[in-house]
Computed example of a mutant assay.
Amino acid sequence: AMLSRALLFPRLGQLSTRSLHTSVSAPSGHHIEHWWGPEKAAGRDVVGYGSNGDEAYQDRLDYWYPAIRFRKEDDISKALRIKEKSDWKTLSAEDKKTLYRYSFRQTLSEFEAPTGYWKVMVAATALVISLATFYAVFLNVYVYPVVPPTFQNEYKEAQVQRQIVLEKGAFLGPAKYWDYENNQWKK
């Protein structure tokens, strides 16, 4: 059987579980789906140490075993807990699933299943690109002139004449090719 991606590539940094969040981003890109602090953990069985010793419920890929059970004990779970202490062959598949759901929120395959969040990111990116495109089209159609006046031939010729007059005697630029005595371009 293949190991989980999180076990093959464990996180480099530890997550802080002191803050009360229902969804926390991890440095590796994974999310802690549920985190229950001490306030919400009251009345739940403590079954282990947890990831850092806190008595809190966490769904995490890098540490699969939460310190407390997912659900509080009730009449159904009490009967199943008594039943599980005997031979497990007497438990039905439905009883085993119910026991599992009292201890954990999700199975590993449910936890690693794709969420479809990439669709939101693609839609947001497409929206930003389309708004930028429409803004650029708006500027080109309604704000900027069709052709700037500096692109017109009359303007370019006037600019060259201005350089010729101001740069008389210069050895670079258009003045170098202008014959000032005959008032024409050198041949």
Rank of each mutant, 00 (worst) to 15 (best):
K40I: 04
S109G: 05
A124P: 08
D54L: 15
E39P: 07
H31V: 09
N183H: 14
P66W: 00
D179S: 00
Y180G: 03
R5Q: 12
Y102K: 04
Q161H: 14
H34N: 11
V160M: 04
Y155P: 13
D75H: 15
W178M: 01
D95S: 03
E73K: 14
D62I: 01
G53A: 00
L131F: 07
A170M: 09
A93G: 10
I76D: 15
I129Y: 07
T150M: 12
V147M: 13
L20R: 15
Y65T: 08
S103D: 15
S16T: 12
L7A: 13
L12I: 13
Y180F: 05
L172T: 14
L15G: 08
R105A: 06
L7G: 07
K97P: 02
N183W: 08
Y177L: 10
P145Q: 02
T22C: 09
K78D: 03
L3Q: 13
T125N: 08
K40R: 14
K89C: 12
S103H: 13
M121A: 08
G37Y: 00
G29L: 00
E110C: 01
L172F: 15
G43N: 05
I82S: 11
Q159T: 13
E157M: 10
I82D: 10
A6V: 05
S77G: 05
P38Y: 04
A26E: 08
L127I: 04
P27H: 06
K83D: 01
T115S: 10
K156W: 02
K97A: 09
Q152L: 08
A6W: 10
E181M: 03
K176A: 07
F70S: 02
V128I: 14
K40C: 06
F104D: 00
P174H: 02
K83M: 03
P10F: 01
S16N: 15
A175Q: 11
A1L: 06
G43P: 08
T133F: 03
D179C: 01
A1S: 13
W36K: 12
L99K: 09
K72T: 05
H21F: 15
N153A: 13
D59K: 04
I129A: 13
D59A: 01
F171H: 15
W185I: 01
V24D: 03
R81P: 04
W178F: 01
S77E: 06
K176S: 10
T98A: 05
S19Y: 10
I68E: 00
P66D: 00
M121L: 10
F9Q: 13
D45T: 07
V46H: 07
W185P: 08
T98I: 07
A41Y: 01
K176R: 14
P38I: 03
T150A: 12
R11M: 09
D54I: 06
L131P: 04
I76H: 14
H31F: 07
K83E: 02
E39G: 09
